[in-house]
Design a protein around this nucleic acid. Structure first.
Lengths: 339, 339
DNA sequence: TTATTTTGCAAAATCGTTTTTGCAATTATT
DNA sequence: AATAATTGCAAAAACGATTTTGCAAAATAA
């Protein structure tokens, strides 16, 4: 792992650096390098373990083989799993991931886009915050490959991949209706992200479809950056204030976790006193007693599709009618004992 | 976010690129640029939103402001939390993380080191696999800043930061002894990583200290890359084969999770039929019924110290007697109802 | 045999910065 | 007043690769 440059190889082989470059980039034909010389150069470079300086290559070619990944928080199990799935897929293209967490801060997010752009990443995978519109528009104007994941902007024509959020919540509600639950509370975050809005919309739609008036007090919106203990407290209070509720939907995993804790504090029995379903499947939900019914996102499929769309752009594949609607994948309803 | 170079700025200001560079890098004094001109240049560059091309800067300066992070698997909650903590710390230095997972594969790990090195990362944070010794030695010879996390190599003098693994298991055993448990099984992985070996060693030491012969059949070593379901099966079998056991220690989080599932399958009651403690604290362990007693790692402290050690090297701080022994932090025994 | 094309590679330009060197014009010194 | 030192900036070199251009020598064509 010494610092050995193309000039060193050239000197060893008694040729010019350009010759070495052509050979190592398999351009012997175009550059008309004789096979004998090419073999000699390849041998030498292999023997001394030459690896080109990536920053130099990047400067010259404009390519870094790095994808910028911007998520909300890598320590959230959903994003951690997604990041891993993306890493696995991207590895196949010999790309790497430079990752950053937005912490749900729009300013922070915009900065990260700037930073990654000037670091010449070859593409972006972004789970955008609610206020990233301007930043994303700027980014699209640069023609950098970009795919949104987990969330999208309906008004922007950016390839996006996510779970079918409405379907997920509809499945929850249908299950509740089928089991005879009629008073379902909905616990979500206060952010204006489309995925969260769609989940809420599906909740409202289901009520309407079943001719039940939507009661705003059955919807709890929790500020996203509230400390965990505060979230638990809010949910606890919400449950106590609405003893009429027979069931709850938690619109995301950490709310589900906080919800379990809150329900424990209230000394309520699941599902006898209250039935629950949470978005996102976790070990916790599977192993909890009783097992928690969940809406599981097809993370691997989302990752695969996102990478396909990204590399379609990177390789300038005939932009197959870049569809305006996001690519959605149906979630899985995993029924356990909590309903 | 246009591609605007230092030459463009120079042209706009009617000066040479070198002048712009000096000003923007706050070297006006050394370069003897007049304040008036400096202000003019700063104004222009701010107005057009100039940001230097990072690859060019990196090529010229040899610095990338990127740290390579190599962990086993970013989707493991422990590593996800650690990565987040590291990211938060590193951000303060205006550095970024290029991350990679080894999947516990030595070849893969060695490749990643190579790759990151040639990408000119300014330093490494590595949770090494068992077979990375050669790779690490090569890396130290390049004098690249390097800090090991979570694991270390006793025979290599590389700054390392991790939890006090022996203390963790000793705390488990002491709790068991105090509560009258005398037949404790130990469930661990088959990898030769020092952290795992130390955990096992502490288990054995505790038995010896209490004049109890170590029974090899009370120790279960599970191949690390076995699918989850297989792990559950192995643990299940182990428990059935050893009905005499009154308690179990799981040496890492995913074994603890699999363990809970196995115990459920056996229809054993915790702690009546069997008491358990797991390494690493998770939401699952806290919220499980009964709550699972755990050894919680001080992840934030580990991250903070690792970054301190890393930047001591990067900034060439007087290598304060680079101690041979790793920096260890005591874990916390979180007692719940499972014992 | 001479003109033309092809071969095989070297030399030079380039990517966008930072850093070193150079060089007038001004100021200070004797 | 002549010389030396300082000021203020421009010009050039360098980082390590890729890509374009150039140019003899060999091969082919006329």
């Amino acid at each position: 792992m010494k610092k050995i440059s193309i000039k060193d190889i050239a000197k060893m082989a008694g040729v010019a650096p350009s010759t070495v470059s052509s050979v190592l980039n398999n351009k012997n034909k175009e550059a008309r390098i004789s096979d004998a010389l090419a073999d000699k150069i390849k041998l030498i470079s292999k023997k001394v373990g030459y690896r080109p300086n990536s920053t130099a290559v990047s400067l010259r070619t404009g390519k870094t083989n790095i994808i910028g990944l911007i998520v909300e928080d890598i320590s959230n199990p959903f994003f951690a799993l997604l990041a891993k799935a993306l890493e696995d897929e991207i590895k196949k293209h010999d790309y790497r991931i430079l990752y950053c967490s937005t912490e749900n801060d729009d300013i922070n997010a915009a900065d990260l886009v700037q930073m990654l752009f000037h670091r010449q990443v070859d593409g972006f995978l972004i789970a955008p915050t609610a206020g990233m519109k301007k930043s994303l528009i700027e980014l699209t104007e640069t023609n950098k490959p970009l795919v949104l994941i987990d969330r999208y902007y309906p008004e922007l024509k950016i390839p996006s991949v996510l779970v079918d959020n409405k379907l997920g919540i509809t499945m929850c509600m249908d299950l509740f209706w089928a089991k005879g639950y009629t008073k379902t509370g909905f616990i979500t975050t206060n952010v204006e992200q489309v995925n969260m809005l769609e989940r809420e919309e599906a909740y409202r739609d289901s009520l309407k479809k079943n001719k039940v008036a939507v009661s705003e007090k059955f919807i709890l919106k929790i500020p996203i950056n509230l400390p965990y203990a505060e979230k638990v407290k809010k949910i606890n209070l919400f449950i106590k204030k609405n003893p009429v509720l027979d069931s709850l939907i938690f619109s995301t995993n950490y709310l589900g976790i906080a919800g379990l804790e809150a329900i424990k504090l209230c000394r309520l029995q699941i599902p006898q006193d209250i039935a629950i379903i949470s978005f996102d499947d976790l070990d916790l939900f599977r192993l909890y007693t009783p097992g928690i019914t969940t809406i599981s996102q097809p993370i691997d499929e989302i990752a695969k599709q996102a990478i396909i769309l990204l590399f379609n752009q990177i390789n300038k594949n005939p932009q197959q009618v870049s569809q305006r609607k996001p690519y959605t994948f149906p979630p899985h309803l995993i029924t356990r004992k909590s309903v």
